[in-house]
């Protein structure tokens, strides 16, 4: 009986501790292959370049761009504020703090979306959250965000709105090598105040 009391004295408090723990803390699971397949199939990891461009323009502090290309490629061009985590070094301890966190929205990007997607797969399988993939990668970014194609006359309003947004985002983000078509874009901005002054005169004179 004495032994029983001693046993009870030890295990009841342990049981109370374990019962008081929040359930989600006790369970933290890695994804099963099925779950990973489901997530990858649904494309939940992709984040639209327009959203990223908008966050970049607004200088959203929660956005963290992660370039998974090689350091050489990163040196030659990278998105503003991006850090370089080459895919081959993804698992080194150096980066685990940055990949496994819940403060930032990490967005992987590469030239296309294959490498970025691989990085997402690996980190997701490790159970990391808040990692995303830039949809279309840098190729799409160059072709559509930095040099958006002018919509045709018959396009719906949304397309024009998107075009306007992309053009202004491209201007704000410094355009890259494709600025030629938008060379005028930064200039009017600087000249804008005089223009508005002129505009004021115009109506008064014209009418």
């Amino acid at each position: 009986m004495k032994q029983l009391k001693l046993l009870a004295l030890i295990i009841i408090p342990l049981g109370i501790i374990i019962a008081a723990m929040p359930a989600d803390k006790v369970k933290h699971s890695r994804l099963t292959p099925d779950e990973l397949l489901q997530e990858a199939g649904a494309g939940v990891q992709f984040i639209s370049p327009d959203v990223v461009a908008d966050m970049l323009v607004r200088k959203d502090p929660s956005l963290k761009l992660i370039d998974v290309r090689t350091p050489e490629e990163f040196e030659s061009f990278s998105l503003p504020g991006a850090i370089n985590v080459p895919l081959s070094n993804l698992l080194s301890d150096e980066y685990s703090d940055q990949l496994n966190q819940d403060a930032y929205m990490n967005v992987f990007y590469s030239n296309g979306s294959v490498y970025a997607n691989q990085a997402w797969m690996i980190t997701r399988q490790l159970g990391y959250e808040n990692n995303f993939v830039l949809e279309g990668g840098l190729n799409y970014w160059f072709g559509n965000i930095l040099s958006p194609a002018t919509p045709s006359q018959t396009s719906p309003d949304e397309e024009f709105a998107r075009y306007d947004f992309r053009k202004s985002a491209a201007a704000a983000l410094g355009g890259g090598g494709v600025v030629s078509t938008d060379a005028a874009a930064p200039a009017p901005k600087a000249v804008k105040p005089p223009v508005t002054a002129k505009a004021k005169k115009k109506p008064s004179g014209g009418c």
Binding site: L7, I12, G15, I18, A19, M21, A23
Partner: peptide, 15 residues
């Protein structure tokens, strides 16, 4: 119920 709470009930039942 949570695994922990079941654990506590199990301990009490065993005792």
């Amino acid at each position: 119920i949570s695994d922990g709470l079941f654990g506590l009930l199990m301990i009490l039942a065993a005792l």
